[in-house]
Write a protein that binds this DNA or RNA. Structure first.
Lengths: 404, 404
DNA sequence: TGAAAATATTTCAGAGTGAGAGAAAATTAA
DNA sequence: TTAATTTTCTCTCACTCTGAAATATTTTCA
């Protein structure tokens, strides 16, 4: 199988991975970064210049004596990635170029009354607008418009099967069940289109740019209306054949067959509070209420969360469990300490418990990250070389000027 | 990084992987198997002949017209793997050559009264004897004795940390806790020495040669005195940093914080039976007893096992859960059917439930398989090429003449 | 006995790498 | 101002390795 041409491909791939990671390097710098010889770097860069994937930029001012290196920079406008977090109430869009720069963020209420086909069209229209905007911004007057690769990744509030199309368990947005919505969207958009579970993509975001950026194995609990979990093993998100992996909300916690979801999700929590005769408007109120009945509800919440934490510790022994979702704000340090004690009473080890760093942006960030991964693949970067690119977004540029 | 010499290495590696998989191939056959050109195969084989790793065997009688190919066969005597399943009561040894042939099986009672150092010496002595026997059997009178690579893999009734030395939770054989036993054994034996959890290695055996041979993701429940589980994701056994992964015995199943182990393991089962006033001698008797009290104990057993099954389905969504261990014989088809119904009531998917095919040999088989993997690595076969070798033992030769 | 067919080896052009020489460009110093 | 020095980049060359094709060898079939 191994021809000598494979060597060239491997070298191009590792060089491109370094370039896509975002630093400013001259050819000499690339020689150091890749471990290739100067001659090879020169030749491979020449090839990339011919492809138009890369261009010579400014001269690198080092201040040292000797000839100055010329910066080799990726033609970032050759790729656009759009990440979408399609929630039950809000839909978030994030677009970046191939280098994860020039972020454009946009959010609006999800038109949840629309049927599958119209919802897909609504979404496709907005993604297309972002593709166009990114293209216009990146257009360089001096060159004829080159091919632009596009990747869109859409996070959905439901389980996505291993085929990437079948959706199941989308109780918050039932019209996207099945593959009608996903297929229509895939047809409506050019370029790569992929779907993922929203909790999985939120974890992807935290894994690349947030609380889990240094973890090898991590779990993210999303405590919102319901309870979901994303699972990353060796920095790869796992979903399973039908997307069931991580749905610890289904786990029974007592002899009456109550599940984690019934005791931990906001809906279950509110119902329990009402049944206990409490007068609360939001899930957060249950945690701040002082009535003994409220304490009992919270105690059951804590117990169920402890069982979920025990289960994931046994299942994956992650370094880290990230807490995200609306309700997670009500989980204070005292409770995380108690939760960890609960686990340690049963098990010889317990993961760290931390809050999400990216909050409601985690999903869109994870989606766009995954889109960038797809783009790298389209540009023939080997997956293992691409995996070395840990942070692929210019996060600072994004988080400051967030246009609501 | 990629020099042109890497191509040669990759080709040698994939060719060796085909040869180690065990078929009888001429150079022409290898050309087909590897996709390499005839010239390359000839050259690489020449190199392997020089190394003494391979030799020309008989002429391949095809019956077709044309020149006959010469069989290229691995010099199987260049490597010996010994797998050990060190149980609380019985210690099983299995030795094979580099091709997984000429199996030698041996078992004797574990001298469980010996302290760590003496137990290590006792074990080392037996492994050395098997190394020697394999060497003697393979010695070819026509050649000077070449270097023989040795690999020993020892399965232990406890969790093995990611460093491969620290042992924890070995309640059945407490003297092997810590790293005294493992370090001494490693010093005492030449060649590679590795340790693994016995449940993990049993799964490794089933994964390569038994019930899980076609599964990508599988779990094995070992129901013996206690309850343990091995986990294989994408055909790789996962243990976690401290070896905790899969210890679903720790999972709580009811509001009284009873654990799966307490309700499912033989010890817990017997205690529950005695507390219920039942007169039973073995765990199997509990299942055959007709008294209502016995039925209740079995009912709780089934419920706890159902929760463990639910948990692993959520955690990994495996195709298959293999049942092994002494008590698993008491789990009949009616019960597995009920267990799967239980899970399906809660979850949208449920793995197959099957009994171990290798029974009490699974652990030793898994250990020797892992030893063979280590040997392949020592002979510079790339891990991904080696992974293509699914069945690496001559199982038929082994299972028939099992010398007790 | 000769033709056909299959296996293995040899030859040769092509593709790719790295070391090192050489050209170009910048700083430093006389 | 000019030469020396240093750094970047390119070019040349020797080397490795591959695959295609030609060749030699061995076997079956007519």
């Amino acid at each position: 199988m191994a021809e000598t041409a494979d060597a060239r491909w491997a070298n191009r791939s590792s060089l491109l991975a370094v370039l896509l990671a975002g630093g400013r390097h001259s050819r000499a710098g690339l020689t150091q970064q890749t471990g290739l010889s100067a001659a090879t770097v020169s030749r491979v860069v020449e090839g990339l210049l011919d492809e138009g994937l890369v261009r010579e930029g400014a001269v690198l001012q080092t201040g040292r004596r000797g000839r100055q290196g010329v910066v080799i920079e990726v033609a970032a406008e050759r790729g656009v990635a759009v990440g979408v977090d399609l929630g039950g109430t809000t839909c978030r869009f994030l677009a970046t170029d191939l280098l994860g720069r020039s972020p454009r963020y946009h959010e609006e209420p999800t038109p949840r009354h629309l049927a599958a086909d119209h919802l897909a069209d609504w979404l496709a229209e907005r993604v297309r607008a972002l593709y166009a905007a990114a293209g216009a911004a990146a257009a360089r007057p001096d060159a004829a418009a080159p091919d632009v690769l596009r990747a869109g990744v859409i996070g959905l509030p439901g389980a996505v099967a291993a085929d990437g199309l079948g959706v199941r368990g989308a109780t918050n947005l039932p019209q996207i069940e099945g593959d009608l919505f996903t297929r229509r969207l895939r047809r409506a958009l050019e370029g790569t289109v992929a779907f993922g579970n929203d909790a999985d993509l939120a974890l992807e975001g935290e894994l690349r740019h947030g609380a889990a950026r240094t973890a090898e194995t991590a779990v993210m609990f999303t405590v919102g209306a319901g309870f979901g979990a994303g699972v990353a093993v060796d920095r790869h998100i796992r979903g399973g054949p039908t997307g069931l992996v991580g749905e610890f909300g289904f786990l029974p916690v007592d002899s009456d067959d109550h599940t984690v979801e019934e005791l931990v999700g906001a809906e279950g929590l509110m119902r329990a509070a009402r049944e206990a005769g409490l007068d609360v408007a939001t899930a957060a109120d249950v945690f701040t209420a002082t009535a003994p009945a409220a304490r009992a509800v919270v105690e059951r919440f804590e117990r169920a969360l402890g069982i979920a934490l025990t289960a994931v510790t046994i299942a994956y022994e992650p370094e880290l469990v990230v807490l995200g979702g609306r309700v997670s704000a009500s989980i204070d340090t005292a409770m995380t300490t108690r939760l960890r004690e609960r686990v340690r009473r049963r098990l010889p080890a317990c993961p760290e418990l931390v809050h999400s760093e990216l909050a409601d942006l985690a999903g869109a960030l994870g989606a766009v990250s995954r889109g960038l991964t797809a783009l790298r693949g389209r540009f023939d970067v080997a997956p293992d070389a691409a995996a070395a690119v840990r942070a692929d977004l210019d996060l600072a540029a994004l988080l400051t000027p967030r246009s609501h």
